[in-house]
């Protein structure tokens, strides 16, 4: 018993070691910085946004950004066709994008890990059925599947998140299963099994913590992918519905102004790119930091 507990508890130097590897990757630190800024903006949106995201100023329709001709200082990034401040909408939009990422990752990690653990631990028929099911999901292009799912469930943010979680699921299942299968036969697992640890304890307390590293990396990737997918669905008109200031939805709404008002098209896309890029940079750093550990275990 005692042996398993020392095994699961992180060594005191863990965090420091992690930070040592992570901070060696300058890009990752930059990504973390940007991400923190976006996160703060999202949390403090009501305080930092110069306007309400839904406030319409009918005297200021499609105003260009401040640095372009005709721009006004109150609307730094200009206004949209009903006179809402684009900057404020982008700031509020960050809430949606981060929220989407968080929900999708939580949903798919939790369910994916559960299913993957079961498949990898028990093997046999359960495993076969689960893996066939995952094959079925993987047989469709993810975006197409998400699109059809949302069409079935009805367009909207919540349904988009469910759909994206579902199409993300197989990656986590496969990853967990593969790691569990490697760990399953290792000495420490067999040891605790012999020591009389129950199935659940073995699965969650013994094996799972040792499979976390690749999962964390995959979760980071899924986080950014979820933001992209949700934006794509929004762009196709199947994600968050207007007037929600979700970035992809803003892009879809702005599409008709592509000729006349470049700023309504450019800024939401840029916001998506920067956020996704920051998270991916972090993901690279995480992988570098967690990789040496993986090799040693």
């Amino acid at each position: 018993m005692a042996a398993t507990e020392t095994k699961t508890a992180a060594p005191p130097s863990g965090l420091a070691e992690f930070w040592f590897y992570f901070s060696r990757n300058r890009g990752a630190v930059l990504g973390l910085g940007i991400f923190l800024v976006i996160l703060c903006l999202a949390i403090a949106a009501p305080l930092v946004a110069p306007h309400s995201p839904s406030e319409q100023n009918r005297a200021a329709l499609l105003l260009p950004p401040v640095f372009a001709k005709g721009g006004q200082l109150t609307y730094l990034m200009g206004t949209d066709p009903v006179g809402r401040d684009i900057l404020s909408r982008l700031i509020y939009g960050a809430r949606f994008s981060l929220f989407i990422g968080l929900v999708v990752v939580s949903l798919s990690v939790i369910s994916g890990v559960l299913v993957g653990l079961v498949a990898g631990y028990f093997r046999g028929r359960v495993d076969t059925v689960i893996m066939r099911l995952m094959d079925i999901v993987l047989a469709f292009p993810s975006l197409l599947l998400a699109l059809v799912l949302v069409a079935v469930l009805g367009p909207g943010l919540v349904n988009a998140m469910i759909a994206i979680s579902l199409v993300n699921l197989p990656h986590f299942v496969r990853l967990t299963r593969a790691s569990v299968m490697t760990e399953r036969t290792k000495d420490y697992v067999i040891g605790s099994q012999v020591a009389g640890a129950g199935t659940l304890r073995l699965m969650f307390m013994t094996i799972l913590p040792n499979c976390l590293a690749p999962l964390i990396v995959q979760a980071t990737l899924a986080f950014s992918a979820a933001i992209l997918d949700a934006a794509a669905l929004g762009f196709l008109g199947m994600g968050a519905q207007p007037p929600t200031p979700e970035w992809g939805t803003m892009l879809a709404e702005a599409r008709e102004f592509i000729q006349r008002a470049w700023w309504v098209v450019t800024f939401p896309g840029l916001a998506i790119l920067i956020t996704v890029l920051a998270i991916n940079l972090m993901g690279d750093g995480l992988r570098d930091a967690l990789d040496p550990k993986l090799k040693r275990s």
Binding site: G27, S224, L228, A231, A232, F235, G248, L251, R255, I258, V265, P268, G269, I272, L273, V276, L277, N280, L281, D284
Partner: peptide, 13 residues
Amino acid sequence: LVGYSMPIFWWGL
């Protein structure tokens, strides 16, 4: 990495 993070629908536009 920028390419990998690109929302391609926006890129196309």
